[in-house]
């Protein structure tokens, strides 16, 4: 990983105190909104415009401590870098918080009748009794407790390199996490966090993520255009910017 912004003090400050930052009004992209100061750097290298946001979002499910974790973690999973804005700038934390109030987060889309066999092999699919809301609550507490055991700092308080290291160890199964993860397997927590972060980076902005369509712009996905009759047979780069369901243009 070659993050140009690693340990950039300003970004670090922004990340930790995100909910406290006042917003500044700017002439925006036609949304009539204002802009959060978490502008990606270096701005001139970013292919996408800076993201726009209405005002600082107040989480409805996550506690202040959990919210600090979510903001810190998504900024490492999809960092702002030379490629453009990351998941934090795209509004992934807001997206994930909003998802916590949907049937999905309560496990209502899944068959959740017992008995459960949480130790079944992976090819048997999801066999845990846990649902996304619980996985976040337990997983964030476990990660912070594990993180504090190193140097007294929560995950959000660690520097970027340490955060990346902790995430890599969770991804690998976190065998060394010990009793901190007694209630939730590290891999289940990590996979859910990564999946939801990618959703928040790439979903239609109507769901609260992918602000300014920065995720789509990065990869060249045209969003809700959904009409390519004249482009089917061509070996050419598609020239038009993304549009959203609400009609915003990137």
């Amino acid at each position: 990983m070659s993050d140009q912004d690693r340990d950039n003090p300003r970004r670090d400050f922004l990340r930790k105190s995100l909910t406290l930052i006042p917003v500044v009004t700017v002439a925006s992209t036609g949304l009539g909104g204002s802009m959060l100061m978490a502008t990606p750097e270096p701005a001139q290298a970013s292919p996408a415009k800076a993201p726009a946001s209405e005002k600082a979002y107040e989480p409805s499910y996550f506690t202040a401590e959990e919210w600090a974790f979510i903001n810190a973690a998504v900024a490492r999973l999809i960092p702002a870098d030379a490629q453009g804005p990351g998941a934090l700038e795209a509004g992934a934390p807001q997206y994930i918080d909003r998802q916590m109030n949907t049937p999905y987060a309560s496990g209502a889309l899944w068959f959740m009748q017992g008995p459960f066999n949480a130790d079944a092999p992976p090819e048997m699919g999801w066999q845990s009794k846990l649902v996304p809301k619980e996985i976040y609550r337990l997983g964030i507490a476990a990660t912070d407790s594990w993180s504090k055991a190193f140097n007294g700092k929560t995950f959000a308080g660690q520097d970027s390199a340490t955060q990346d290291d902790l995430l890599r160890r969770l991804e690998a199964g976190g065998a060394e996490t010990g009793e901190h993860f007694a209630a939730v397997p590290p891999k289940i927590f990590f996979n859910l966090l990564l999946q939801n972060t990618k959703e928040g980076f790439f979903c239609d902005p109507i769901h609260g993520g992918n602000k300014g369509m920065v995720g789509w712009t990065m990869i060249g996905f045209p969003g809700a255009r959904a009409d390519f009759m004249d482009w089917v047979e061509r070996n050419e780069q598609y020239p038009f910017p993304a549009v959203s369901i609400r009609g915003e243009r990137a």
Binding site: Q83, L167, L194, M218, I219
Partner: peptide, 16 residues
């Protein structure tokens, strides 16, 4: 990798 800057760069490079 499944995440981080290397994932971002590859996804931008290969999606289309």
């Amino acid at each position: 990798p499944a995440w981080g800057s290397a994932w971002k760069r590859a996804t931008a490079d290969y999606y289309t």
